[in-house]
Design a protein around this nucleic acid. Structure first.
Lengths: 347, 347
DNA sequence: CTGAAAGCGCTTACAG
DNA sequence: CTGAAAGCGCTTACAG
């Protein structure tokens, strides 16, 4: 049988109130702390989180909801979130929709039943009734890499528009005009942003984009492979390609190598998020890099801030609380950076 | 304020005991169930898991500990575990050691503090003091893809020896003799098993293996890339290569393509665990496939079985309980299969 | 089938 | 700084 605070109190010769105070970081005279510490050790005592939670109404757990565990980007972010949360003694409950968007509502309900203190999510679509319900129930929701159309919500974003613009500009300045871009699903937030950046690069240089060079995929390895092939099968193939996530970058490179094309002699190339790969192949690939680690960290921190009552006064100052219907959500925008390699040929 | 069982009871005009019984699946006369159901709906009532847990001494959560979230194999298994556990209303708490084995003990302690009902883990080494402590504390531990040297533990394994033997035999029968193998870290369980299978294939055909064709890696994409390069730089390069996990398979293929070698004309190749890739490249790759989905499922089921008291009688029959020091652990061995492509040339 | 009551192991004002 | 006591929201024998 596991030891309880009662056992510790008895062994230390003190009341449970004192032991509780000690455990929670309150001040207790030295002799007593020593006795308590000793008792905890001998009994191998661990606080019963459920009894504590019942009183405090907090589980110290955060639900993390992602569209699919099979995307490196998601996993990197989860890893960073978990790391940051565990530092504050929060546990991370991961829910994977396995690529099935209809699972999202089910999983959110599951998390709510599990009484998580908050939810960090990367939604599959641009709105979520379930997320709204959670927010209304007082469970903070933090969005990662997405926005909702129908509801303002705390969120951590990367300036993907700028990053895609930088990548495209790099290619345009090297003289490329027909630049293939391998996007994700057409309607999701990051695709829209990256495509905006792509167009904007042309626009700023007074050039016109070629719509037949725009290819949508499911952001998978296979999708990238096929997208690259179909781009190269165009009557007039692009002279450069930009892949916009980890998986499509790898898929593209495989397709390029397979077809016998040489980078950059036959095709210039810029990848996304695959820092590990960029140095692997020769020549080194120019790569647009998102600060994945920081995304996860910031999302975790933002959540922690929402949960921590210590900024109560701040809230009332700004008038931004969850029940305030003018609430706009806090937005954190991080910037990516372009890592220059030798995969672009000047023409 | 969230509604409690008391509120539901009041609204339904019944006692909390009856409501509790209803919630937990007990029989209640129809009129009353309807009233309770109605009350739950109107109040948007959800059981307080902490209050329940305090009584039942169960959190209905399972900790899952993996060496690194950056391995596709781990993620696939986690996904399956989560899916299976959530079906039984268990939540999954994921802890990632981020490739740092020294984190393992820390994370296990974290899970214990969080009072998970059980731990499913893929340990980084061949023993774990922390895992032993957990098991001793009555927390079931299920190992995935690993065994401990120092302690018997429930485990779900794949017959990697057989799978590697099959793959190697396939190459030997095609006439290859110098077969490169890209393993993982030298001392981990799967590496040992796969290497055993490799040797055994030679042995069964009365042939001798070439030790210089054996290459160890960290199972990463980069590791696979480099391992392949160094194999091909041998004074006498292998005529075939077997990569033994997802990442080294992708890395190898990239290195092969990059070097201009053609599969299978210049080099025969067998990969591992990369079903998505095997059909992607031309020719289709012969691939050793582990039943990842099933590994996760079985691990979850095994854990659930350990937790469910309904097999109490069975336990006493077999005399296998956790406190029994002759306990050998339950071992589930799954078999992989070789998916034949056209990446092997007969010589 | 239903209800009154005890108790799970904590935290938290409130006294002292 | 310390302790007695109430109470968090459930479940579970035990009566009826």
């Amino acid at each position: 049988m596991a030891a309880t605070i009662k056992d510790v109190a008895r062994l230390a010769g003190l009341s449970i109130a004192t032991v509780s105070k000690y455990i929670n970081g309150g001040h207790v005279i030295d002799a007593n702390s020593a006795a308590i510490e000793q008792a905890i050790k001998t009994l191998d005592y661990r606080v019963n989180t459920m009894a504590r939670g019942l009183k405090t109404k907090k589980t110290k757990s955060i639900g993390v909801l992602i569209p699919s565990v099979r995307m490196v980007f998601c996993m990197d972010i989860i890893s960073a979130i978990e790391d940051e949360l565990s530092r504050e003694n929060f546990s991370t409950m991961i829910c994977d929709c396995q690529g099935r968007p209809e699972q999202e509502a089910v999983k959110i309900e599951f998390l709510l039943e599990k009484q998580v203190d908050g939810i960090i999510m990367m939604p599959s679509s641009n709105s979520s009734e379930a997320a709204r319900r959670a927010a209304l129930a007082g469970i903070p929701v933090v969005l990662v890499d997405r926005r909702f159309n129908t509801m303002e919500c705390d969120r951590v974003l990367v300036d993907n528009r700028q990053l895609a613009e930088d990548a495209t500009t790099e290619l345009l300045q090297a003289g490329h005009r027909r630049i293939g871009i391998i996007c994700g699903p057409e309607d999701i937030y990051t695709t829209v942003q990256r495509l905006n950046g792509y167009y904007q690069a042309y626009e700023k240089l007074g050039l016109e984009a070629y719509n037949d060079c725009i290819s949508f995929s499911d952001y998978s390895l296979e999708g990238g492979y096929k997208a690259l092939d179909s781009l190269m099968e165009l009557p007039e193939p692009p002279t450069a390609v930009l892949a916009t996530n980890y998986e499509t970058t790898i898929g593209s490179v495989m397709a390029i190598n397979r077809s016998g094309l040489k980078i950059p002699e036959d095709l210039s190339f810029v990848g996304f998020d695959s820092l590990d790969m960029s140095t692997l192949v020769t020549p080194a690939l120019t790569m647009a890099i998102q600060p994945v680690q920081e995304i996860g960290e910031q999302a975790a921190r933002l959540m922690l801030r929402r949960l921590d009552p210590q900024d109560k006064n701040k809230k009332s100052e700004s008038g931004q609380t969850h029940s305030d219907n003018k609430y706009k959500g806090e937005e954190i925008i991080l910037t990516g950076k372009l890592n220059r390699g030798a995969s672009i040929k000047t023409i």
